[in-house]
Design a protein around this nucleic acid. Sequence first.
DNA 1: GACTCCCGCCAAAGC
DNA 2: GCTTTGGCGGGAGTC
Length: 907
Amino acid sequence: MQQAEMGTGDKENHSSEPHRSILKTPLKQAATSHSVLTELQPDCQPLTTPTKPKEILPVDPWTPTSNLKMLISAASPEIRSREQRRELSNNPSEVLQAKHCLQEHLSGDEYEKSQPSRKEKSLGLLCHKFLARYPDYPSTAENNYICLDEVAEELNVERRRIYDIVNVLESLHMVSRLAKNRYAWHGRHNLSKTLQALKKVGEENKYTQQIQTIKKREHEHEFDFDGEKNEEMARSFGSNEHSEMSFVELPGMEFRAASVNSRKDKSLRVMSQKFVMLFLVSTPQIVSLEVAAKILIGEDQLEDLDKSKFKTKIRRLYDIANVLSSLELIKKVHVTEERGRKPAFKWTGPEVLPNIQGTKLGTTSVTRPPPISEFIPSKEQCSKNLFPLKGKQSFTRHPSLIKLVKSIENDRRKIQSAPTSPVKISASTDQNLSAFPSEMAQVPAIAKQQLEGQSKKAKEMKMKLSRSALDCNLSLPEVVLKPEPPYPAAGSQQPALPQPPGLCPPSHGSVSPVILPQTHSGVSYAIYLHPSQAHTVTTYSPSFMLQPLPHANVTGIKSISSKVVNKITTEEGDNQTATDDPTKSMTTKERPTIKSETSQRCLKRSQALQENNSPKRYRSEKESLDTSLGESIKYERPPSSSSQMNHEMDNFQEERQNKTKTFDQNVASCYDQCKREDIPEDEGKIQTKQDIPVAFAIPAHETFFPSGYLIPLAHCTHGNKAGFSDEEKAGICSLQHTTYSSPIAGVIPMTASELKAVNIPAFHITPLNIMLSPTSIAAAPLLSNSSLNSSNSSSAPNPSSSILNFTLQHVGLIPAGVQVPANPVLQHVPISSQPENSSHGSETMSLQEKPCVPKEPQVPQTATENFFRTPGGPNTVPSLSANSDGTKRISPGTLYIPQRKLEVSED
DNA sequence: GACTCCCGCCAAAGC
DNA sequence: GCTTTGGCGGGAGTC
């Protein structure tokens, strides 16, 4: 049909758009197909068809661009049809003629079918086409300008749609507006920076908390739109000073147009950024549209919350999600809860490192511009100082003030990088260079800024700490964030420069430790995984729960976030593991940058903290104020209103509920991850909540943890390959491939070839707390790895003989009943000889967990109760305390999995 | 019937 | 005053 259309139109051979004819050559028609792939089927010569469009064409040389266009066109008949239609549209009479011709040739149904399907017109597909036009990582030599008109024309869509795409891309700084109708394409060069910035801002905005709040309310009551609820919500959001948030900019890429600023509070850009933030701060990184919409609305005008607004927000979120999906940053999934199936999206983009400010790795010679995060807060702070935002959430800054702020910021930047910094991307053909002028040239500027910023940062941090950081349980570790002297065990082999926790050079050992965050006790762990587990346990471990230590060393270094863990493991596993996700490879590409930035941030933060010990002080004060929970996670928020005070009174309860939800989410996420058929080994290794010390997941349908070993690791670093005995290599870990090493002091090696299953039930471990079922304990003995210990560090204790015993038993080197001299550490651990309880078959992926404590009465319990319940009582948390030899004591019988059914499915 | 999300109106901002 | 941007919500297509 369109062929008919095309034929008719092409006969006229519009010389004005010769290149377009080229698009028609590879033709195939019948746009009725619903998939691009099917469209690729060659030669589905449709119905009647007039003669082939004049081969006129080749006016356009066979340039790469035309080639690309052709390919795009080939992949999408939609483009072709649009091109054709567009051509026809140039001549209305021809259009009519063509239509008549079409209708003559086709019956009504056929004509209907001939129209591009809705899917073919989707924003996602359009975005794909758009992205196909530009390289992910454009070189500076290329012409990276985007003319909206041209694009719209070439893609044959109305410009309005291009705006939708561009706005989202802009939110990620993949493009930037140069002038009217003109944008610059940056590709993914800035993506990691942007994501980092977004994550930081998201954390500052307490999105995690907001998500929890919303979910809590969803659980308590159906979310409704009546005034009372909204007021409550409004109070909740209103208490958040950070609610008002404008567009997060990267240095050198600020918006200039006042229009952008004036409308930006509702702009697709800002919404997009916020949406992304939700993913970045969430664990698991799954966000339902409903929650996202509520949060976005909540920030705007909660008082106006009504269904139409909600619907509109959802529409916009779909728009954004389509683009983000095209970018492969998110993926659509469905989360099934008690109340039904909900659309949601899962983050599939690169892992985003936390804003750990630290040293750059010793030998890194590349100097980067000051971290984006340093610009944003200052700007935000400045704006906020100008406009204290206690009132209306939908406040919009006056453009002039924004300009003022920007001006100040720009001035500062100019001063700091005067010699070489271009003012802006604008005329440059190299936007990236413009945005980030010669890195080397910025060394002095960076140094200066660092120096200047340190004292300021310390103050800022103190302020932040006192008002927000403690707010969320997830950010708790950040509160205790403190420079830590080099790891006791991180000694000899470590570079002289302080290293961010968990950041370690690649190792090539045979074991697969997954680095776990530095804990409060100052002991960090890595989970050594059997290769066979690498894609299971390590695949996605959303079950990391924050479990502060009762007598934690408050000076403990900030726990590295899961993202870091992921990153590290991925980095190290790169050579061995293939990824099936393009975004992962992108992550790989960006690693050096991230690493470097992370290091720098670590250094800065350390310096700032050394200057000002406020975190410690603050924490101490908090501790003294609140003893009821000891060191356990608190839902702390500086009361800002009486209602909040009341709210705080329910602190503990809420905390538990939050934990339950988080736990459930984690489990759901775990399922989701595990459900994937092809799980790249380097994906998701261990994912903790932010700054959460330790935890991991095990297959949901296997309510046991076959064999993991909690080993205080002396120096499980890079060179640790040699540190393992052959026996251990073969028996304990027998790993052949991906190796993850940790520069930190503890490891939790886990072998367990049984753990091949994909479903991973939640499982809770911290250095001092671990929840395991007896069978799990049996299967997951604590183990001290002598060779690990011997690998280097004096700080690492010698292995426990009983652990070794267990290991030997487990690997079948000695009978189950035989034990070498007992180690008190494990005496209380019932070593069950019963077979592990695998309950495979959870193919539905639904989580129907049951307490796996055989002797406990199986009383229906809530997930929270399960989660907190221990043999010793509802609120006693089993502890995994450190023994004198450094091994950890695990209290058995406490692997509790939420009973709520949660299902995450992908479309 | 709910979910998705395309489409285009039209107002604000820019030039 | 014209053009560019983009918020917005109706309603069609899909599930």
